[in-house]
Design a binder for these strands. Structure first.
Lengths: 354, 354
DNA sequence: GTGAAAGCGCTAACAA
DNA sequence: TTGTTAGCGCTTTCAC
């Protein structure tokens, strides 16, 4: 293995000079620097990560804590992870992958063994058990998601989509189009029960806007299966026959929903408008391109890294950063039908796949 | 920060004794070991990862190189990554996430800077540019996927599903049910062009079995959009009207396909049988539970880590391990219809969503 | 602008 | 069974 000492000898300088060429923390004369650089290239030298970590107490690694028990549809998580990784690389960092299931222990492990310089935590719950350890930690952490308490005050650093505004935006869009009765197909019940912040905040935004705009709102958590979606939608139309607007926040439910509406003979958007809260790609590739508030997974991952790197450089103060929701109108939504939609004979038949 | 020396002082022993308690590489008397353990707990000591890496030249980290440019549907990649991470943890390793886009340079970086003890490489292409560096590396690597040349001979270590057998299994299943004309909806053209091994191997298996069983086989690469699937399927039924068996190897195409068949009035499995090559979860949660050869993502990740860990322990020789395909029959496939399916008026209409 | 040298915290011979 | 000690390869003060 080629060491820094080898490079120094080859270039006829001292070890410290080589080190300073690498770190740029000292001005080096051009000739010396070039000579050293040639030696580095000639010998194929790479600094030993462990030695560097020991001497400088900086590892060049960011830990990313990612949920393990995501269900079937995980593009958002994946996109965040990849954005984190590429952004980190762009700043000279590598990414260590931790599973959320390790819980607070993983936080302590990273902190105690100095295996990473800081961490990014995904899938934050309203009352997350990792928060105490994250607050106590020396190393900076950035959360993707918001816990229940006001993050600013408690010294945490958060990045997230403004889901409250996103929910409101969906209702406003439909209300602007003349829809008076809206139903929401939400994430599976387990997500709400677990205390996942984004789901609760979206719902709050939906409700606030519904009250403000004077439109009726029905909320149904659903599993992402065809049968579950069919059951929920059928009930909605039975209980609120005049429903013409649908909001979906459940990636797995999007295609089942569209298939079902087609099956029931409800045209989108002529009879029913559908607005989704999901990644742009999902909305775009659906069998009917959907109007959607996009979940900017890439931006979230990127911003989280940028904040963390800034903190490591001693720059930024901590705080909460909410990304503004962006609604893109597509074929899935249109003006509310002027007359109540005709009765659908399918409403009385059973649905749910086969 | 608590160091090993602090623990030694607190317990009244030498540093090496503490080190040996931690590593278990030396027998320590019970009283001493317990006393030291109490000191460790009392002080909350954690070994410094960098110091350990420097002194022992072992980092306790496995690098995982993962494709970045996976399309929309990535459950398989995600599941492998998570299986790798949890299995690695179970063996005392952490996982460093690298993007495949870094290419051979990432391999050199890991090798040169000793940031990980070994690596796992996903998304291996038939003639992968990373192979030379992987072969030259001191540190062991395990590939998930097979390159073109016989891996055993060239000293690489591979884990993968036996996709050739998987393809054959699909055709055999349909042939056993009496189907005589089979069409394959494959991955997007780019996947084949890129030289991704699994797609080519599956196709080889499909073709071999088709010849062996004397059934007709049509192969169509498709993008995972409703429009693309609709176009491909419509063409298939026009060109081979008697087609009653469909094999899908394209996660994104599964739901569009089922929706389209429903739309065309082709009952599954009465008119058309559908067999998929995909993760069990995808097959199970489809709007029609599909007969499928499951891609055992979890097992692949687990086995890759186990092999790598064995190599790091100096045990195992390198070689290729192909996991046997397992076909699970579900509602999506049934006996071939005895008469040719009726003509579908939809065949003459245009499809493709909206 | 450059060099010398003292660690960083741990492991693993070598000694006892 | 335990202790002593020499590094591991790099960073960074201090000195010139």
């Amino acid at each position: 293995m080629v060491t820094l000492a080898d490079v120094a000898r080859h270039a006829g300088v001292s070890a410290s000079t080589v080190s300073y060429v690498l770190s740029g923390k000292r001005s080096i004369s051009a000739p010396t620097r070039e000579r050293i650089q040639r030696s580095i290239d000639a010998l194929g030298y790479r600094p030993h990560a462990g030695a560097r970590a020991l001497a400088s107490s900086r590892t060049g690694i960011l830990a990313l804590m990612m949920p393990l028990r995501t269900g079937l549809y995980v593009p958002v998580m994946m996109e965040i992870a990849m954005a984190v990784t590429t952004t980190a690389r762009a700043h000279g960092y590598d990414v260590l992958l931790l599973t959320g299931e390790e819980g607070p222990e993983a936080v302590r492990r990273v902190e105690g063994s100095a295996v990473a310089d800081g961490m990014i935590v995904m899938d934050v719950e309203l009352d997350d058990p990792r928060l105490p350890d994250l607050r106590a930690a020396e190393r900076p952490a950035v959360l993707i998601g918001l816990p229940a308490d006001t993050a600013d005050i408690t010294g945490l650093d958060c990045v997230d989509l403004d889901f409250t505004a996103a929910g409101a935006r969906c209702v406003d869009h439909l209300a602007d189009l003349g829809h008076r009765r809206i139903a929401v197909l939400g994430e599976p019940p387990a997500i709400y029960e677990r205390g996942t912040g984004y789901a609760a905040r979206t719902l709050a935004g939906l409700r606030e806007a519904a009250v403000r705009r004077g439109v009726g709102l029905l909320h149904r958590p659903v599993e992402g299966t065809y049968a579950a979606v069919a059951a929920a939608v059928t009930r909605v139309f039975e209980e609120r026959p005049g429903t013409t607007g649908l909001v979906v926040q459940n990636e797995a439910a999007v295609e089942p929903l569209l298939a079902l509406l087609r099956h029931q003979g409800r045209a989108v958007p002529e009879d029913v408008s559908v607005v989704a809260v999901c990644p742009d790609q999902v909305a775009l590739h659906a069998s009917v391109p959907l109007t959607a508030v996009s979940v900017p997974a890439r931006d979230m991952g990127r911003r989280a890294v940028e904040r963390l790197v800034a903190r490591l450089a001693g720059e930024a103060p901590r705080g909460t950063e909410l990304l503004a929701p962006l609604l893109t109108a597509r074929a899935g939504s249109g003006p509310a039908p002027r007359t109540a939609p005709r009765t659908h004979p399918e409403d009385r038949r059973g649905h749910g796949g086969r």
